[in-house]
Computed example of a mutant assay.
Amino acid sequence: MIMTLAKDDLLLKLGKVIALILQALCVVGGGIFLFLIVFVMLLSQGLLPGPVDANSLPDVTRFPLLSAGIGVTVMANFAAMFVFFGKMRLLIASASQGDPFIPDNARRLNAMAWLLLASQVLTVIVGELRVYGFSLIDPQSKSTLDISPTDLAGFLIVLVLFILARVFRHGAAMREDLEGTV
Rank of each mutant, 00 (worst) to 15 (best):
S44Q: 06
G98S: 04
M88W: 10
P49Q: 05
G71R: 02
L66T: 15
F78Y: 11
P49S: 02
I92D: 07
I37C: 08
F35S: 03
P64D: 12
L34R: 10
Q45N: 12
C26P: 04
V74P: 05
V28F: 09
V27L: 06
P58G: 00
V52W: 15
V83A: 00
V72S: 01
N77T: 12
V27H: 01
M41A: 10
L43V: 13
L90A: 12
I32V: 14
V83R: 05
R89W: 07
V40W: 11
G86M: 04
A68K: 15
M75E: 04
L66F: 01
P49Y: 04
V74R: 14
A24F: 14
V40H: 13
I32W: 12
I92Q: 03
D53Q: 13
A24V: 13
F39I: 11
G69V: 10
F85R: 10
R62P: 02
T73F: 01
P49A: 01
A93S: 12
G86L: 02
F63A: 03
I32N: 04
A54G: 00
M41F: 04
F84P: 04
A68T: 05
M41D: 14
L57A: 12
T61H: 08
F84H: 03
V28G: 04
G69W: 13
F84L: 03
T61V: 11
V27A: 02
F63M: 06
A93L: 09
D53V: 06
I92A: 02
A95F: 01
V28H: 06
G29Q: 05
R89C: 00
L57V: 07
L22F: 08
V60A: 12
S67F: 06
M88I: 09
Q45E: 15
N77W: 06
F35C: 04
R89E: 06
I37L: 07
Q23H: 02
I70D: 04
I21D: 10
G31C: 00
M41T: 15
A79D: 11
A95I: 00
F35R: 07
M75W: 11
V72K: 05
F63S: 03
L22C: 08
A68D: 12
Q23M: 12
L22W: 13
Q23K: 09
T61M: 03
L47G: 02
V38Y: 13
S96W: 10
D59S: 08
F35Q: 06
L57S: 12
V52T: 08
V52F: 13
L42D: 04
P51T: 11
F85P: 01
A80H: 04
D59C: 06
I70R: 07
V38C: 03
V52Q: 14
Q45I: 08
L42T: 11
V27S: 02
S96G: 09
L48E: 07
V38H: 08
V27W: 07
K87C: 13
A95R: 01
T61F: 02
A79I: 15
I37D: 13
D59K: 11
V40P: 15
A54W: 02
S56C: 07
P64N: 14
G50I: 05
M75S: 01
A93C: 03
V38M: 07
S56L: 14
V52H: 15
P58A: 00
G71D: 06
M75N: 08
V28W: 05
A76F: 11
A95K: 03
V83C: 00
P51I: 14
T61E: 11
V38D: 05
G69I: 10
A54L: 03
A68M: 14
A79E: 14
D59M: 08
L36E: 13
L25N: 10
L65C: 07
